[in-house]
Every structure is written in C-alpha cells, then in structure tokens.
Simulated assay, not measured.
Amino acid sequence: MMNDYTARKTMNIVLASMFSLILFSCAGPTNPFGGDVFISEEFSINGSSARQDVTLEVSPDRQYYNSPYDLTLKINDPKFQLDKFRYEVVYNNKRLNRWYQTEEVEAPKKKGDPIKVHFKNLSILPGNINKISFLYYPVGSKYPVTYKLRVPECYQDIKSNNLSISPFQVGSNLKNNIEMISEKYGYNASLVAALIAQESSFNPTALSFAKALGLTQVTPLAHHEINKYKPEWKIYPKFTALPYLNLKSKLYSNVINKKNDWRLDQEKSIEGGILYLNYLNQYWDSPEKMEILGAVFEDEIPKTDILLASYNSGAFRVKKSILKNKKDWLFDQSLNEARKYVMNIKSYCYAFNQGEENEK
C-alpha cells in the first residue's frame, strides 16, 4: 500500500496532469469554434476522395474578422447516408474533437437535398494565423472531400460594384461621396469604405489619442504630406499642442469645425485619406523601394497590405520589417497592431464588395 505522502504526491501529479490537459487542450479563445472543443494531435490531409459528384460549399465563402458570425457548410452528396455521416474540422493543422455538438446539423429533407452544418457565433480573431478546413468523408471513401476557408482579399484598384456598407448605418450622401471620390482617384470604393469603417466607424468627428481626426483619421503629420497636394486645406491652429480633452471639448462645442479644420469636412476627409494613400503609393513606387520589394516578393507584391500597414504604422517601420523578415514582414512584433488593422480592413472590404463575384 502507498503511504500518505506517496498517495498525496500521486494525487497531485494526477491533478496537475488533468489541469494541463484542460489548459492546453481546451480551445477556448485559441480557436474560432468555442470552448467545448479539444484540439487533438497534428493532422495532415494525405489524399482526397475520388468522388467527383460530391461538392462542399461554405457561406460566407471567406473568413470574417470584424465580429462573431454564423457560417453554414453545405454538403452535396447524392449517395448520402445519415447513419454513416462523418465530417471533421481542422484548424491550423490540428483536428478539433468536439465534446458536445455545438453546431447544428440539418439533415436532407428529401433525396438530393444537401446536408447543412450551421456554426453559430464563429469568432475568427484578426492578427492570428487561421487555417480552417472542412473535411467530409463520403460513404466508402478512405479520403475526404476538403474545403479550405480562404482569407478575404481586397485590391486597391478594382472597381467596386453595388457597394454595400452593412451593418453600418451610413447615409446615401456619404456612400455616394465614397464611390464618387474613389472613382475619381482610381481606388476601390470598398477599400476606402473599409478603411473608414476601421478608422472611425463612419463617425465624422472621431478623435484619437494620437490626435487623428475625421472619417479617415488624418494625423497632423499626415496632414503635412496631404498639404503638398492641397495647400489651401488648413487644420485648427495649435491643434497638435492642445491636450486631448481640450480638443474633445472644442469639437463638442463646435469651436473646431469643418470651416477651420478640413478633416471635419466629410468629402475632404475622404479625399484626404485617398491622397495620403497616394503619397504612400509614391513612396513605395520609388526605384529604391521597388528594388527591395522585387527582391523579397518577386512577381507577387502584396501592395494593398503594404499600403494599409504603412497608413497605420508608418512606411519606415514597414520597410524595416520587410528588410528584416522578408515575406513574414507582417508578423514582426512591431507590426502586431498593423497586422490586425490590415486583416480587419480586408475583411470589411470583401464584405462591402458583396463577395467573390466582384473580387476579380
């Protein structure tokens, strides 16, 4: 028999092991599918089903970072058998083993109907690496049919069709101005709207602690560059020197207004944000910078990502990270905020552009 000391020591080891298992295996915030999930061992997909008549569809068809959302996996299998139904979710190369079925499975109502799996309140965090795959195993097939949920994309010079800014409540006048001014400068209106959504949530008087102001959150430093294009545009005297709370008070009492600070004029704010993107474009289009980008990225330069990260954190910091980290530049610790910023804007942009049909 074990003595008391040995028994207590054994119990402590068991409890510590259980705690470690819960701590490191419970998904909680570490994966998008909730806290009732075990993350299993590394998992690799070694083959694919030969069944050409089986297809998987996911709606929405891209990852979405801006808020929790519902996602539906639709499985089209004419030979579906409910008693042999098997599917899996793989997140960052690890299979997720569910304790409880938190998702809802909707069986076909009649032959030929798809199987639907509804995931509620899916939370995908921007800034993380989120590799998500859905695997479905047809009856009699050793290997699965796989659907990889791609990241949202957004391109600066693609014309946006039928811009939608839901769920933001934006007036038609502001929406029209975004479309008109974006087209004037050859920018994707969905990208400009997404930048505004991220910067100010469409609040025309938004003020940050860094003293960025307006829809596109132009700082006094950025104003200096924009002023080269628009020398007649002025900002409130001594704006930079005034304390934040003092500025808030002056904005509230309308002492600072669109007549003495152009950033409060909605049309000028939109144009100013685009002009600052133009300045950043010129910075990165210089022969020296293009040589750096060409050496690192070769033919596929992520120009939109670089511009957005520069808008957020400064072009010099972005250049320094590219030189240091090459293609992993956006994962440098100094760009943690910029990485979330870029991913959020691309998510908004893709949603505003109403999905894949307008991406190309």
Rank of each mutant, 00 (worst) to 15 (best):
N3L: 05
T6D: 13
T6P: 00
M18I: 14
M18F: 15
S20M: 15
S20H: 04
P29H: 12
P29K: 15
I39A: 02
N46F: 08
G47L: 03
S48L: 14
T55N: 10
L71D: 01
L73Y: 02
P78W: 08
K79Q: 12
K84M: 07
Y87G: 03
Y91L: 06
N93V: 00
R98D: 02
K109V: 13
L125W: 11
G127N: 10
I129Y: 13
K131L: 07
V139I: 12
V145H: 03
D157Q: 07
I158A: 03
S160I: 03
N162R: 04
S164K: 08
S166L: 11
S172A: 12
L174S: 01
M180C: 03
G186W: 10
L191S: 04
Q198M: 10
P204N: 13
F209G: 07
L215Y: 08
Q217I: 05
L221V: 14
K228N: 08
K234T: 14
K234D: 13
I235T: 08
L242E: 12
K258R: 13
K259L: 13
D261R: 10
R263F: 10
S269K: 07
I270P: 10
L275N: 09
Y276A: 08
L277W: 09
N278S: 11
N278P: 01
Y283V: 15
A295C: 00
V296T: 13
F297D: 08
I301V: 14
D305P: 03
V318Q: 06
K320C: 01
L330H: 04
F331M: 13
E337L: 10
V342H: 07
A351C: 01
E356I: 02
E357I: 09
N358H: 00
E359M: 05
